[in-house]
């Protein structure tokens, strides 16, 4: 009873591919869904923003691909543990919110000593968080060693378009406009915001 050669070779090929497929089944099986657009309602409280911010960091923001919380040893990226306690004093003249905003909108402008530049700009594709989403992330970051203070109305000077108005709350029907005062960012270089205040938000939801 000899097996014909082509059958033997066929068997070998099937067994080999089968073995590799089997190896492939042994590793953790994780399906990565495309990020969900987190709906940010205008009436989010700061506590809600913390929760949403955490979700964004875990999901769409991809933050935990690089950053860790509460890990020590040789790190490739700064650990975010207690980051809020350092943020306010990192750069002179920047409050903690502004420091966070700057690190997210212009990540290479300040590099934590001992690390290499490498963080992508978060408000541009491929990650492309909206301004509101970034505010939520900042809210969560503030809880790491501090207390969240930002609201959806908080303004800072690093919005998507320099000199543009800060994000209007996306759902203006839910709340009358005057209840959500639009805080203008500190005017930079004497520029005055040109966009009409009631115009579309700088948030790019759905566009990317």
């Amino acid at each position: 009873m000899t097996i014909p050669l082509p059958a033997r070779i066929g068997l070998l090929v099937v067994l080999t591919t089968g073995f590799y497929t089997y190896v492939g089944q042994l590793v953790p099986q994780k399906e990565v869904q495309p990020p969900q657009e987190t709906a940010i309602r205008a009436d989010l409280t700061t506590a809600d923003m913390v929760t949403v911010g955490r979700q964004i960091m875990e999901g769409k923001g991809l933050c935990f691909t690089c950053h860790t919380i509460g890990k020590s040893g040789v790190l490739r990226f700064p650990d975010l543990d207690g980051v809020a306690s350092r943020a306010a004093t990192r750069e002179p003249g920047l409050s903690d919110v502004e420091y966070f905003a700057k690190s997210i909108y212009a990540p290479d402008s300040f590099i934590v000593p001992g690390f290499n530049p490498g963080m992508p700009v978060i408000n541009k594709p491929p990650i492309g968080l909206t301004d509101q989403e970034i505010l939520c992330v900042i809210a969560y970051l503030q809880t790491l060693g501090g207390t969240a203070t930002v609201t959806l109305q908080t303004s800072h000077r690093y919005y998507t378009a320099p000199g543009a108005i800060p994000p209007a709350p996306p759902d203006e029907k839910a709340e009358p406009g005057e209840k959500l005062p639009l805080t203008l960012p500190p005017a930079q270089k004497g520029e005055t915001p040109k966009a009409p205040a009631a115009g579309p938000t700088p948030g790019k939801k759905g566009e990317v």
Partner: peptide, 15 residues
Amino acid sequence: DAFTPTLGFATQVVS
């Protein structure tokens, strides 16, 4: 099909 499939599935397709 925008999601990234599991490695197990990918190895099956490759095989």
